[in-house]
């Protein structure tokens, strides 16, 4: 009987997934690179146009600003949630973890529409504010960066909570006990002993949220109402509205490169292997 060598067996198992990736992902991606250099005529015209355009620059700056704000918001809120679940929840722990994961099972589209219901001109928040007399006229809570950041923090929160929770699970309570036994108050023990140990979790949560935010489309498109053009939406406009495939492709390449640069910089501070692959 024919026996496969280990190497052959390995390739047989990997091959189906690899084939799909190459045919349906890598190949079209290379096509995008090609289009960016050939449409409408061969050369680097798309890239020079991209670097010269103030609209593109504005969109890139906006994208990074929103991604940074979202990351900061997710880290602060997520840290508190992860900390409470890891250190205080006992019987409620499975329930709290389920509540963190719950948004994953609801479509991003539905979650974004819910925020429109909440933040719209005659949404629940504005109605309540006016009914209680805190404001006279409705405030603009969406179709601006404020609304986009709020909704994005909501969508991205689990991606911050999960790596931080995984990290905190590995930190023994003995460290804080030791710190307090050695004379440190609760706050000092947290700041000097517990918090530094959670940095790997914080960094991997930050990286995950930031990278996902850079290329995010649905939520900014819905909550921004066309006024907050993050780079993904800008690309869609170029291709769908202006049929400008050349510039659209060049922007996609630029986004890909920007994301790769972020990951490369982060890799100097975060152990990516432990951050993204192994949950310790």
């Amino acid at each position: 009987m024919f026996r496969m060598s280990d190497a052959l067996r390995y390739w047989f198992l990997v091959l189906p997934a690899l084939a799909i990736m190459i045919v349906f992902y890598i190949w079209p991606l290379l096509g995008i690179w090609q289009i960016s250099l050939t449409e409408p005529k061969p050369g680097v015209a798309n890239y020079t146009e991209m670097f010269d355009s103030t609209a593109v620059q504005t969109s890139f700056i906006l994208t990074f600003r929103i991604a940074i704000l979202t990351t900061i918001g997710c880290l602060i809120l997520g840290y508190i949630v992860a900390y409470v679940i890891s250190n205080f929840a006992r019987r409620a722990k499975p329930l709290m973890v389920a509540l963190v994961l719950l948004p994953f099972w609801v479509s991003v589209l539905i979650r974004s529409f819910s925020w429109i219901v909440l933040l719209g001109r005659s949404g629940i928040v504005n109605d309540t504010l006016m009914a209680t007399g805190i404001t006279d006229s409705p405030m603009r809570l969406m179709h601006n960066e404020f609304g986009v950041v709020i909704a994005m923090i909501h969508v991205m929160l689990p991606f911050a909570v999960l790596p931080m929770m995984a990290n905190m699970r590995g930190i023994s309570g003995a460290y804080v006990d030791a710190a307090r036994g050695l004379g440190a108050g609760e706050w000092t023990a947290f700041r000097q002993v517990y918090f530094p140990q959670t940095m790997p979790g914080v960094m991997s949560g930050a990286l995950l949220v930031f990278v996902l935010s850079l290329g995010f489309y649905i939520t900014p498109a819905l909550l921004g109402g066309g006024r907050v053009l993050m780079i993904s939406e800008y690309i869609t406009y170029q291709i769908q509205e202006f049929l400008n495939w050349g510039l659209g492709s060049a922007l996609s390449v630029a986004l890909l490169v920007a994301t790769a640069v972020v990951i490369a910089i982060a890799a100097r501070f975060v152990n990516l292997r432990s951050a993204l692959l192994e949950r310790n």
Binding site: A174, Y175, A178, P196, Q197, M199
Partner: peptide, 11 residues
Amino acid sequence: MVFQGYALFPT
């Protein structure tokens, strides 16, 4: 206090 698992601060 000296703990069973030493509890030296790893950072």
